[in-house]
Design a binder for these strands. Structure first.
Lengths: 230, 230
DNA sequence: CGAAATGTTGACTATATTCAAGGCAAGTGG
DNA sequence: CCACTTGCCTTGAATATAGTCAACATTTCG
């Protein structure tokens, strides 16, 4: 699923790369308002980006899966405008903070890949914004489950029998979809009782894809896109 | 406010640039689902990106002001995942469809600028997502007015006496903030009667910035960032 | 084993939506 | 010049979706 990387690029990236890091679930990878925030590619595990209002209300912006490039936004602001937290144990591939510029200068193809990844993440945000702004609670949750399922399945087994690993808590789903915890719970149960999906033991199974897709109404051309990796 | 451009880059960009285009207000600049969508910098006027669900519900993703680079997302998908429509008369600077790659290859600094612009637009989307997901109607509208005011003021007069040109209809505000038209109207009147702002004759004045900022709760370091222009 | 996090549920409330009118201003065609 | 249309703004009443609050159950984990 990832585009192959030329050897020349690989060695250049190696030069800008710092030692891989392992972080346990729950670690704050980037704090809200942090300056000198790190820059890294997520190599394994799940994470999420979020913002918090003064009174504690929190919005999850999007979920990060392996291959996602994190910390780009800090290049356009003095301090990080959002937080990033590890949802599961993760492995990171951190880069020097000037790596974005170095990569653009020395390997335009990789620079283009970074732009590609930024545009791709923006497309995810667009879809989230539609959910939160215009979909009902049931539609939002159907959309989230489907999109995450497809992203995760594309990374591993495209048709997993036992479902995918699914580390989200209901609170996180609520914060991502702009709903209250109670309503999120009720809606999840509604869909589950209706036989649309099943969440159990930290795994998500899509039981009735047709029904979920009807609710979600997301454009999807079927085949997962080939994506660059930095 | 825009970063200066080196002559070498300017001439390279000129080579990739197609003739400037003028479009009247209301023109569809990119249709939802369109393939071979154009790529351009907005030179003057306002526009907006949006998505529509099957049943017609519409979400405005963000508003586009002069200097914004449009069409990047189409590079990561076969067809445009969103529509773009001109809100006022606009001037566009269209590029050849392969310009993104050409720019990265031939002028890494400009390639970096494109990445910068993508990351910057993503930051705007993040803020919108927080509004739609976690702010009350009054907070959403206060946030939108403030953010648009600052963006528009930064482009022209930083302290406009008569307010800024403000071409949004209430329906558009509603679609941007995930509210119904009726509630948007009521909320706008509420804020206006409370003396927070004033919209009249297509212009927006910020009457009580303190109160609006208290409602909006947006991070703002004061000085508008210097941004690249492609 | 106890504490903390997560999941579950009900009763009540509130915010925002829907529906349905009507007004006003600008543009159009007879 | 005046009906007529069209788009946008305005408003009220009824309704619905989702939020709040308050328990309690269950699981996880040290």
């Amino acid at each position: 699923m990832f585009a192959p990387i030329a050897d020349a690029h690989r060695s250049m990236v190696e030069a800008l790369r710092l030692p891989q890091q392992h972080k346990p679930a729950g670690t704050t990878l980037i704090a809200e308002g942090q300056d000198e925030a790190p820059l890294f590619t997520l190599f394994s595990g799940w994470a999420y980006r979020f913002k918090t209002l003064r009174d504690g209300r929190r919005q999850v912006l999007n979920f990060l899966l392996p291959g996602d490039f994190v910390g780009l936004q800090e290049k356009v602001a003095d301090a990080s405008l959002h937080g990033v937290e590890a949802l599961t144990d993760v492995w990171l591939c951190p880069f020097r903070r000037d790596a974005v510029w170095q990569i653009h200068r020395e390997a335009p193809e990789l620079g283009y890949s970074i732009t590609w990844l930024a545009a791709h993440e923006e497309a995810l945000l667009d879809e989230n914004l539609v959910s939160v702004g215009r979909r009902s609670a049931a539609e939002r949750i159907a959309t989230l489950l489907l999109v995450l399922y497809k992203r995760a399945a594309a990374l591993l087994d495209p048709a997993p029998r036992e479902g995918i690993v699914f580390p989200l808590t209901q609170q996180l789903i609520a914060d991502a979809m702009g709903l209250s915890l109670a309503h999120t719970h009720r809606t999840l149960r509604l869909l589950e009782r209706a036989g649309l999906h099943r969440i159990r033991d930290g795994r998500l199974q899509i039981v009735n894809p047709k029904a979920l897709e009807r609710l979600a109404d997301v454009w999807d051309d079927g085949r997962p896109a080939i994506r660059p990796l930095v």
